[in-house]
């Protein structure tokens, strides 16, 4: 019996902090609950909260913003991580040093990254705004964070800056597992460097890149911290990501039922992506062993 008794504390903690809130939010998503009026959830409204999402412009905007953010951020992170990994693969004199430097952006808190980028892109005194203005005079005085497109670009930039190093390490791991002979054989067989990369290295990196892409996608879907500290969702609603929108609905407007429904929509999207990923991975393995 003792083992079960010892398990109980951990089980209780998980139940109280994860499973109960999840179940509670799921139930809440089918109820009406205005926190400014009621202390407890009100009556059941069926799928009304979900149906409301389908027609509400705030949600649709955040879905669109999130899609743009996820696609650009994932694509850029992967390309940069893969390129950096190719550069860092060769063990040079700066090997250890570059790796230590590389881990620094990842060690920083995302909220802090948002704050520091807001300073750096301040048109009056921001070091990046001023620096870019000095190099390209056309950019002098550019209202970086006041322009919807530029604000989005900077939001993507902070996220790529934060994640690319970590993903570089994943790619480095993947590259290290590719037998060197396959590249050397291709060199002797007559392949150019580009062909070796696209024809030999990339196909063997498929599994690693798939994992990296899915992880990055899920992290990007949750994008919240930098939105709060860098743009506040603005200008307007141009950087209002789904996670930020859910937060606003729940804790600014106190519409808990609707917020719960939105959170579950986000969860469903992530689950779909995960399932798709597992399928891809399994089919890949089948191809390799069948």
């Amino acid at each position: 019996m003792l083992p079960y008794w010892l398990l109980i504390p951990a089980f209780v903690i998980v139940l109280a902090t994860t499973i109960y809130p999840l179940a509670y939010s799921f139930v809440t998503s089918f109820r009406e609950w205005d926190l400014t009026k009621q202390r407890r959830p009100d009556g059941f409204v069926g799928f009304d909260n979900y149906l409301h999402a389908a027609s509400e412009s705030g949600f649709q905007n955040s879905l669109w913003v999130t899609t743009i953010f996820v696609v650009t951020s994932v694509a850029l992170t992967l390309v940069i991580a893969m390129s950096l990994a190719l550069l860092l693969r060769r063990k040079g004199r700066m090997h250890t040093f570059t790796r230590i430097v590389l881990i620094l952006p990842f060690a920083m808190s995302p909220a802090l990254i948002g704050v520091s980028y807001r300073f750096m892109f301040n048109p009056e005194f921001g070091v990046l705004a001023k620096g870019l203005g000095a190099v390209f005079p056309a950019l002098e005085g550019m209202p970086w964070l006041a322009d919807p497109n530029l604000a989005m670009a900077i939001l993507v930039l902070t996220d790529v800056w934060h994640w690319a190093p970590y993903m570089t390490f994943m790619c480095l791991g993947g590259l290290a597992s590719i037998p060197r002979e396959t590249e050397e054989a291709a060199r002797i067989d007559g392949a150019s460097y580009l062909r070796i990369f696209f024809g030999i290295i990339l196909p063997q990196m498929k599994g690693v890149l798939l994992v990296t892409a899915v992880l990055k996608t899920i992290f990007a879907l949750k994008m919240f911290d930098q939105v709060v500290t860098l743009t506040g969702g603005g200008p307007g609603t141009s950087t209002e990501t789904l996670a930020f929108f859910v937060f606003n609905v729940g804790f600014k407007w106190y519409d808990m039922g609707y917020a719960s429904a939105l959170a579950w929509i986000l969860t469903a999207i992530m689950m779909l992506i995960s399932i798709w990923y597992v399928r891809m991975l399994l089919s890949d393995r089948k191809m390799a062993t069948a």
Binding site: P179, E181, T182, E184, A185, A186, R187, I188, D189, G190, A191, I200, P203, Q204, K206, A288
Partner: peptide
Amino acid sequence: PPKDRDIAMVFQNYGLYPH
């Protein structure tokens, strides 16, 4: 470069293209 030497090589671990 190796490709212009008119050689072919067989490696210890074969070096086959797994994909």
